[in-house]
Nucleic acid binder design. Structure first.
Lengths: 337, 337
DNA sequence: CTGAAAGCGCTTACAG
DNA sequence: CTGAAAGCGCTTACAG
């Protein structure tokens, strides 16, 4: 294969140590020596063996990012931000796609790739709080997404209750009275949905609007198709809603599509708002009002937490931080009816 | 940190070799010995050090996937398929996001992470054929995307000329006469655009339609915003087109949005077709007619090529394979005007 | 400023 | 079936 340090050392007529010094940018090397070594280095097209280096150094410079799915735009956009933030910090990212499956999330938490990955950023869907807390692997970890973990590890998220509240409130503010929700999960489902439901209910209460069971719909996988289906059921109701708060943008885009298919106008007949601010929502017809979490900030904060843990600060109490978000008004909630 | 093989060996009262045998599932181990070892293994919560194993074995089980951007839906969907295919083959994927920048693509080709990655799947945008051919790093590599490489490495792609031809032809078949194109690149731009332009021109020729310079628009970054801008320019023409072939779905979705903003109906006034079959196109209003490349097949073929190279078949002539694609008709080209 | 040597944790011929 | 030992390629005290 490629040349080793020893090959280079031989060719340059110096010791392995000296070559290593040059390769690693150690300052105190005679110009002459350095020149000789560098010549040999490039003649042999030397590339360090990273496995060996990692073994010796006890670190790899790789962190794993475990996400439910890479082709859901929110996660894709988050992954981009994360890869960028990791790179700025000198790390590269390895991605694990869990599909939100319990089995796979467990596998990640138990430590796939021991000693190959210096840290872990995980967005769990299936695994619960207790299991997270009972983790035996000691690779530094940062949690993403929900906000009901209560301390098994550092955690970065937006305030989901508040975000959902603001989205719902916005629908109230434009004069809507029958506000539906799409994205509720079965009782054992993910916490994000529970928190967003909470925010929705809080906002209805604050506005003095009644809660109607019929207007609260499940969104099993948080994908467009669930949004289509749910909105169709809502529109088939004897007294359909005049607005929908969708627990994410994909559901909302599905809802827009479903309304269109049913011949119902958005926003005139039904206003729609989502959460995530994925790019699609800027270009859909109508464009989508949404809550925009600061993805770059989430990425940056996650890396900061992870870095401090990787740097040795393992025992400090788990930290919890909430990233910024803001409401972005677009066509799907414009105007009154 | 964690326990090493030696720790386990001591505890079990056997040699390191025996523990290694058990860990690696070597068959010929006495049940008694195995039991002892397994007990020690779980008592110490042993996890193999992958860096050490990789160093020794000379392989890592990791392949790198270098894509322009992870948050472009086509690449996100392709990445998902690739991660899946790699996993089926026992590999994990590390993603490099090049942003299509020459500098970063070069870095990938020169071998970032030497010996840490067994193989490379690259979708180059900026780097040209000559440079690919002149690569010095000998990590096995598979190329994705264009089809004008002519042999520097194994290559998987769809037949872009044919795909563009079929898309254009479809517009002809529904009676359109003034068919525009969006997505042309500056002369030194990527080959994909050149090939799709070729297919477009071929189809116009075959249909006996004239080529009009005014109807051929650039699409610098292949993103939605370029589609919006280009379609607006087209619609401002004294004699606007009645159809547009967009070189990818993102451009097409932008074009739909742009037409909507201009008060022009799709498909009645202007029919639109794209390439990629990203999920958004199923749910847009109107839904998008497109060419669907078989992404799973692309992923599978790439892995097969890569595996054969990684298995040692380094010197065989570079292979070229074309993945399947098909036209999917949706609302954006339905009906005649 | 440079060298000789140990050792990171593993796998693998080689013996027995 | 199991053990003792070498070595993958690197980094890093330790000398000098």
């Amino acid at each position: 294969m490629g040349a080793s340090l020893r090959d280079v050392a031989q060719r340059a007529g110096v010791s392995v140590k000296t070559v290593s010094n040059v390769v690693n940018g150690y300052e105190h090397v005679t110009p002459t020596t350095r020149a000789k070594v560098e010549a040999a280095l490039s003649e042999l097209n030397y590339k360090p063996n990273l496995s060996a280096r990692n073994l010796r150094r006890g670190r790899s410079g790789i962190i794993a990012l475990a996400l439910p799915e890479l082709d859901s735009p929110y996660f894709a956009e988050l992954a981009r931000a994360m890869i960028k933030a990791a790179e700025d910090a000198g790390y590269t990212v390895l991605i694990d796609q869990t599909d939100g499956l319990l089995e796979r999330e467990r596998h990640v938490l138990a430590g796939i790739r021991p000693q190959l990955v210096d840290g872990l950023i995980v967005s769990p869907l299936a695994v619960g709080r207790e299991e997270l807390a009972a983790r035996t692997d000691d690779t530094p970890m940062v949690l993403l997404g929900e906000s009901v973990f209560e301390g098994p590890a550092d955690h970065v998220a937006i305030d989901n209750v508040a975000a959902a509240g603001i989205a719902t409130e916005h629908l109230v503010s434009i004069g809507r009275q029958r506000i539906a929700a799409i994205g509720v999960q079965p009782p054992d489902g993910q916490g994000t949905a529970r928190l967003r439901l909470q925010g929705y209910l809080d906002a209805l209460g604050a506005a003095g609007l009644p809660v109607e069971e019929d207007l609260i719909k499940q969104g099993e996988t948080f994908h467009r198709k669930d949004g289509v289906k749910a909105v169709q059921e809502l529109l088939a109701l004897p007294e359909p809603p005049d607005a929908v708060f969708c627990f994410n943008d994909l559901l909302a885009l599905g809802a827009i599509r479903g309304a269109h298919e049913a011949g119902v106008r958005v926003p005139e007949d039904i206003a729609i708002v989502g959460i995530d601010d994925i790019e699609d929502g800027q270009y859909s017809t109508p464009s989508l009002t949404t809550i925009s979490p600061d993805k770059d900030q989430i990425a940056r904060l996650s890396m900061e937490f992870l870095q401090s843990r990787m740097a040795g600060d393992r025992d400090a109490a788990p930290r919890e931080v909430q990233a910024d978000f803001r409401l972005i008004e677009r066509e799907s909630t414009r105007g009154r009816h």
